[in-house]
Nucleic acid binder design. Structure first.
Lengths: 166, 166
DNA sequence: TATTGTTATACTCTATAACTATA
DNA sequence: TATAGTTATAGAGTATAACAATA
């Protein structure tokens, strides 16, 4: 576990970055998020809830946790945020709340046909955004990045909620 | 450039993640940032400006761009944010504004002795946070991740400002 | 007129707490 | 009493625009 600098790849990157920031993990992460957010801005601008709306729609379309509380914990959102997101996505006709006959407190959220169609279009456009943001990386770097991010997400998800996740 | 799933590392990660999110680059990034932010929260809670304060302090301590506008562009912050950050860090005695005799409009920001000392302590604690967040990763994965993030940051920085960066 | 920096304002996101309804 | 969901409110973070000082 190297804490600061990577040992295998010094390459030409560092001299392009502002001094002192190339080895600041937090800044690098934040910068990457900003880059992605910026590039994805016009893809999701007309989608209720923006990128988070897309993420919720995606989770729901895979037929996953379904109840709003389960969605909140799976996605890592606050449960009130889920209410707002589902509100807006429902108004747009992309998801619907189904009453659970077994427990009338819970709402099963599911994607509508329109929601699935919209999701497919979004995924297509966001794949392009991803390509654009990762344009400077080799195929191996992209694979490594994705694997590493998944591992981080796993650790974080497991820490937040011992069981489940679909 | 693989747009969706990584081809080399299927491993055990994916079944731990909520369905439909393991291959959502935006969600993975956001999740990683949340994990880091959460883990770093109590390290930076008493630092003016939080993590951004640390980043500005770090950039300044390396004797880098110096003027507030240059800092804003290097860090990717809004210039008004830099004003607030420098205000707060200056009140805390960690940085100081020096008048430039050559151009009396600009302020050269530099770290004080106390600022450098504080930065060293922060860096030490944040290295531990980083270790904690990256606990699930192998050394190779950490190196790969850092290299990939640097490449993304480079692309983003270059897009935002053709020249400079120290 | 253009640039650096500041201030005031507003807006978006997110979290907190209080509430309803079910169990 | 505890849980799912909603609503209201407030807070942090951020951006916009107007401003002062200097070039």
């Amino acid at each position: 576990m190297t804490t600061t600098t990577g040992s295998t790849a010094p390459e030409e990157s560092s001299d392009e970055l502002p001094a002192g920031l190339g080895d600041d993990f937090g800044w690098l992460l934040a910068r990457a998020v900003r880059a992605y957010l910026g590039a994805a801005a016009d893809v999701t601008e007309d989608l209720p809830g923006g990128l988070r709306g897309h993420q919720l729609l995606r989770a729901v379309a895979r037929g996953c946790p379904a109840t709003q509380l389960a969605l909140a914990s799976a996605l890592g959102f606050d449960r009130t945020v889920v209410t707002y997101l589902v509100d807006d996505l429902e108004k747009a006709g992309l998801v619907e709340r189904l009453l659970d006959p077994a427990d009338r407190r819970v709402r099963q959220v599911s994607a509508t046909a329109a929601g699935r169609k919209r999701l497919a279009a979004l995924d297509r456009r966001l794949a392009k955004v991803q390509e654009q943001v990762l344009a400077g990386l080799s195929t191996e770097e992209v694979d490594g990045l994705t694997a590493a991010l998944r591992a981080i997400a796993c650790t974080a998800t497991r820490a937040a909620q011992p069981d489940d996740a679909c």
